[in-house]
Simulated scan of single mutants.
Amino acid sequence: MALKNALVENLRVKLFVGALAILFWFVVVTENFYEYDVDIPIVAINVPDGKIIANDLPAKARVRFEGKGRALLNLLFSREARVMLDLANVRQRHAFALQRQMVQARRSGAELNPLHILYPDTVWVKLANVFEKPVRVSANVKITTIAGYTVVQPFHFAPDSIFISGPEEIVRKIDSVATVYKEFSNMQQSISERFRLQPFPESQRLTFSENTVQLNVDVEKLIEMTLQEIPVQVQNAPAHLKVTPVPSTLSLTVEGGEKLLLNLKKENIVAYIDYARIRDTATTGHPAYIRTPDGVRYRDVKPARFKLILENQNHAAARH
């Protein structure tokens, strides 16, 4: 037992002496001066008001430092050094020749100094005017329903538009932003869900006033009905002519969501013949063009073609 206690005590002494020796060695080593290459971030500061950086800057620069071992160790672990690009006097483009004076480190001084920047040697900066405008939101969704149901257009967003901000040249070309893509299958109930907006590539440096929108989509029973005696108009006729279609009305079958069609009236359907599209060679009558409210589809237009009666200074002629 005494031998065991002596061995344990001896081991403790040896461990203490060993740890003390390592600590002494570490203190001595870290007091020496060394050179070491470190990758540090490149940071742009003082961007002028109304401007934005319009090109990709290198993320880091490799810098050779000289300093005491402990200062270099602190630099490696703290990552506090930066290469600072001051854009205060840049108006559009500028090439920064990287110099060691651009390096900022909290412990710079006698114990740590940047010797020189290894690479890159030059950084180009391009500035653009900041521009903001409203753009509409569009749904990037695919919706399928079970048989007997339909998706009622249009979709409803809240908000239905957002502000987009970024480099003027890019923003002016954008007229809409889309939601992230999502599919809905076998739907028979309406959809109300919050969607994230699809971001643009980071290189375009665009920001949104909102990053999500509420999307509401009505899913209703699919019904159809036939509407009779819808008046047929004639558009774009010359001022000196009175043009009358024969017959003067048509019928058609419409289909769509139940709520939408139950409130639909024949006055909501526009049927017209565009006189500007008529050619003298047409001999089989002229088709009517149909406009229906959003979400309403049509078919079985009767009749399919119409004759026109033209009246000009007290005489009439039929155009076939």
Rank of each mutant, 00 (worst) to 15 (best):
P287C: 10
V123G: 07
L23Y: 13
E224F: 13
V123W: 08
N186Q: 05
R106N: 14
V219R: 09
L260T: 05
S161F: 12
V296E: 05
L260S: 02
Y36Q: 12
K221Y: 10
A44W: 14
I52Q: 00
D274W: 06
N113D: 09
L310C: 07
I273T: 06
Y181R: 11
H320E: 05
A54T: 01
D160W: 04
I174G: 06
V17I: 13
K60G: 01
Y275D: 04
K60T: 09
R319E: 02
W25R: 01
A97H: 10
L87H: 02
Y36K: 13
L308F: 09
H116L: 14
T292C: 12
G166C: 00
F24A: 15
D121K: 14
V83R: 10
G18M: 13
N46W: 09
E255M: 04
M187L: 10
L222M: 14
L262D: 07
A97R: 07
H240F: 07
A21Y: 08
V130N: 04
K60M: 07
Y149I: 06
R106L: 15
F157A: 04
R79L: 08
K173T: 15
K133Q: 03
L7S: 00
S78Y: 00
A282W: 08
A6K: 15
R196K: 14
A317S: 04
G256H: 08
S192P: 00
V232T: 04
E66W: 08
I162N: 05
K173V: 05
E255Y: 12
P134I: 00
T249W: 08
V152H: 01
Q235R: 13
V83D: 03
M102C: 03
R62A: 11
S251R: 08
T292W: 14
K126A: 10
I174S: 03
L115C: 09
L197N: 02
R194D: 13
